[in-house]
Design a binder for these strands. Structure first.
Length: 581
RNA sequence: GGGCACGUAGCUCAGACCGGACCAGAGCGUCGGACUUCUAAUCCGACGGUCGUGGGUUCAAAUCCCACCGUGCCCGCCA
């Protein structure tokens, strides 16, 4: 609803400015501070002061007079407070907000008829997903959700690196070593099973006898060549390892949950000839140079040359990724990629090379994530350092369960939680807490992973927000009959707590719009927390079920609207909204 | 050495892209209060900050520009 109100303010203010002969290019519309009784404000008067030859407050008063509120649906009055213009909402604003927010899809913007592919996670299928990698789906999934809410047709892709050296080495190791040479797997799962070969192979190459290592290198090289030449046998050997490990990784990711519409395999772009085709076209560009027996691109504004064809005529990761992105451009209007910060240079080279090939690279956006480190250092699948995401989730659920059981005695609500409820709550709260801890922070900031903080259920955390949903659900549950939200007297909702809550509900679609625009899930996380605070004040001050007549009806409608809003905000973040906890 | 990012209360962060009611807001921690009232995973209060440092632009700077300091990442015919 805030979006509609803003549109009215924009046209109204433009008209007023025009009438007075002022420029209309900068309306200075902003959100007023919480203690101001307005929904929107403008600071134009500051900038107009010089043109007008008057002090800002004088200009503001002049504008307030010129603003025509007679035909406005949502703007009731314009008031000045010093140099600021404050726009106060009409009762219709509250009515429309309640009506809109009780619809299940509240927060979804109008469809745009534009497709976007969100690629995220894309971790190499070398072993179990660790906590460092988990930042990618935990931010990538909400980015996809956000674009979906913003009206795009979204597809979620996981790009599977099945053609690289790592995978060739893994394949060799898997075939070369025997199970009896390996330690027991940490879990009875295919990715935990196979990663042992990967680690064993990696250690062997570093520490093994010289001639055996040379022999292994030759075998790895042969696998890579086989892939390059399109030999079916090489593809089969590699895919045994890749598909098995990937299957295991998907089980972990599904717990978050993060799911994908398509797993796009890198080898696809070797087999269909598109990588070769890219190479041919790159060679014809004026930036192509042949140096040290390899084809390279001397890209504008990038110091480092990009090698796109090795001296042995094989392609590189980035070459194949170029073919991959040309395919994305053919099939989607926009492409968003969520990558680790170590790919920053590679992403710039990719963009620049795509530009060279004649693509509109404005369609391509990249979100870079900084590392999640342990207090003692980084995480690595190959070295086996780091914490498996499964372990983190298990521990989170275990602690959440202990918490639920602790609270059982002091529980005021007289419902009986079944064993199944306790399981459900532990899972929702435990996993929610892990996700919120990561999604709420700016991706550019390095995270040092600490158990205590990641699993703090009382901080600014998921359970705090989930609790609001449970409280709202509890009230609605007991109310039995819900009022028609379009037929309640919103005027009875006149306390500060009620007005604040309406205001927060109304702002949700605008939050979605801005967060989608900037690809910023943390903005939704912050909103959800602020929303929860506002709801909790309302909850404390305004009894719903025991309120008299029309007040009860109106408050019930308000609680229903709040429940939908918080449920959908959590939905964007990929965090469960518990009915009870 | 070069490129990119980050630096805000003791700790973890929001605010920065788009300067304005911010002489800066949360949470944790510490201290003190509130459960006969729709779930206390809640709420209320107190203590706590030269917004890394220095300069500049502006009527106005946490926010924009420059320099410096500190930290992370990258600078492979790896991915």
């Amino acid at each position: 609803m805030l979006l509609s109100m803003r549109a009215e303010v924009e046209t109204g203010l433009s008209e007023a400015l025009e009438r007075l002969g002022y420029p209309t290019d900068d309306l200075g519309i902003e959100r007023p501070p919480d203690d101001v009784d307005a929904v929107l404000a403008s600071s134009v008067a500051f900038r107009l002061a010089e043109v007008a030859g008057e002090a800002p407050p004088v200009v503001a008063a002049e504008l307030a007079d010129a603003f025509d509120t007679s035909d406005r649906e949502y703007v009731r009055t314009v008031r000045t407070q010093g140099p600021y213009l404050n726009f106060l909402p009409a009762e219709r604003y509250a009515e429309a907000t309640l009506a809109a927010a009780t619809e299940d899809g509240y927060g979804h913007l109008d469809p745009r008829d534009q497709s976007v592919v969100v690629e995220h996670t894309s971790a190499n299928p070398t072993g179990p997903v660790h906590v460092g990698r988990a930042r990618n789906p935990i931010i990538g999934d909400p980015i996809a959700n956000l674009l979906d809410y913003a009206g795009y047709d979204v597809e979620r892709h996981y790009y599977v690196n099945d053609a690289g050296r790592q995978i060739a080495m893994f394949t060799w190791a898997y075939e070369r070593f025997d199970e009896s040479d390996l330690p027991d797997p940490e879990r009875d799962r295919p990715d935990y099973d196979l990663v042992r070969y990967y680690r064993k192979g990696s250690t062997f190459l570093e520490e093994g006898p010289e001639d055996a290592v040379a022999e292994a290198e030759a075998e790895i090289q042969a696998i890579l060549q086989g892939l390059e030449e399109g030999e079916a046998e090489s593809y089969d050997r590699v895919s045994t390892v890749v598909e098995t490990v990937l299957g295991g990784m998907q089980q972990t990711l599904a717990r978050l949950p993060a799911s994908f519409d398509e797993f796009v395999r890198e080898t696809r772009f070797m087999r269909d000839g598109s990588t070769e085709d890219v190479v041919a076209r790159l060679r014809d560009t004026e930036h192509a140079v042949y140096e040290e027996e390899a084809w390279q691109l001397d890209l504008p504004d990038i110091d480092k040359n990009l090698v796109f064809l090795r001296s042995d005529d094989t392609s590189l990761y980035t070459t194949r990724d170029l073919a991959h992105h040309e395919w994305k451009f053919e099939n989607f209007d926009r492409a968003v990629t969520v990558l680790g910060e170590d790919h920053e240079l590679q992403a710039r080279q990719l963009r620049s090379a795509l530009d060279l090939l004649g693509h509109d690279t404005d369609q391509l956006e990249t979100v870079h994530l900084s590392w999640v480190n342990l207090p003692e250092g980084g995480m690595s699948t190959r070295e086996g350092t780091g914490i498996d995401l499964d372990d983190l989730l298990d521990e989170a659920i275990r602690r959440a369960r202990a918490e639920v059981e602790d609270r059982l005695d002091g529980r005021m609500r007289d419902d009986e939680l079944t064993e199944a409820d306790i399981d459900r709550i532990a899972r929702q709260v435990g996993i929610g807490a892990v996700r919120y801890d990561i999604v709420a922070r700016q991706p550019t900031k390095t995270i040092t992973f600490e158990w205590e903080r990641a699993l703090d259920f009382e901080a600014q955390s998921a359970p705090y927000i989930q609790y609001v949903h449970a409280r709202a659900s509890g009230i609605l549950d007991e109310a039995e009959q819900l009022p028609d939200p379009t037929a309640v007297e919103t005027a009875t909702l006149d306390s500060e707590a009620e007005r604040d809550l309406i205001r927060e509900i109304a702002r949700f679609p605008a939050v979605v719009e801005a967060a989608a625009e900037g690809l910023e899930p943390p903005a939704v996380a912050t909103y959800a927390r602020e929303f929860a605070e506002t709801f909790n004040s309302f909850y404390r001050e305004c009894p719903v079920l025991d309120a008299p007549g029309e007040t009860r009806r109106a408050r019930l409608a308000l609680v229903a609207a709040a429940q939908t809003t918080v449920a959908n905000a959590l939905d964007i973040l990929g965090i469960a909204a518990p009915e009870s906890m």
